[in-house]
Design a protein around this nucleic acid. Structure first.
Lengths: 105, 105
DNA sequence: CACACATATCGGAAAATCGCGATATAGCGG
DNA sequence: CCGCTATATCGCGATTTTCCGATATGTGTG
């Protein structure tokens, strides 16, 4: 969750990004307020799965798995509040990925 | 081969990078002179497929397909000279990829 | 506790990918 | 033209990925 230089984690990250829908979700999360309103402020805790699922137009299970993939790649973090799991971009990790591509790839 | 903004093209690039051997090849190409000597200067035209194949320890057809994947992702360019196809990193595109991840992903 | 809702996980069929050997194409030299 | 070499493409079995519906788990409410 912090460094990410080793090849196995890196492959995991690229694999998570090798799906157009997952890439789109990541881009959508740049503007959490573009999603429908929710109890918790999306800017702070992230966007709840239901809203991501609706926008991506995939099944509930697929949405859940997509977000799990992005999370295990370290690209998003999750925050469970009550019944809702909220997902938010991990800007630090995304920045590190850009650095890594520039310097080591 | 030029801009690469949309999620489908971007996913293609990440797919090419989701294979450890292909990533290694890209890294090897940072130092073309680390390959055996060849008629054409590797620094200028790139490294010929045969040398890449030998170092990656994959079959000839696999090596050819790996490089085709990297090329259609825009990460390398190819230069055919006589019977040899040489592959060289596309530093501009790799730089753009890093920028793109930082700004648009 | 019973129920509704949100999410996670399971199991599997279909689709995509992997990496190879076989074969085709292309360029050189005799 | 013929043989030799380098590379590209084809075809295929094996493996992996994809995405779903079904189901399980977790959480709030009455």
């Amino acid at each position: 969750m912090s460094e990410l230089p080793d090849p196995d984690d890196l492959a995991l990250v690229f694999k998570a990004l090798s799906n157009p829908t997952r890439v789109r979700i990541l881009q959508w999360l740049k503007d959490p307020d573009s999603f429908p309103p929710q109890l918790e402020p999306a800017e702070e805790v992230g966007v709840c799965l239901k809203h991501i699922q609706a926008r991506a137009e995939v099944s509930q299970s697929t949405a859940s798995q997509y977000m799990a993939a992005l999370q295990s790649a370290g690209l998003v973090t999750s925050h469970r509040i009550g019944q809702w799991t909220h997902y938010r971009r991990n800007e630090e990790q995304i920045g590190r990925l850009a650095d890594h591509i520039r310097t080591e790839l």
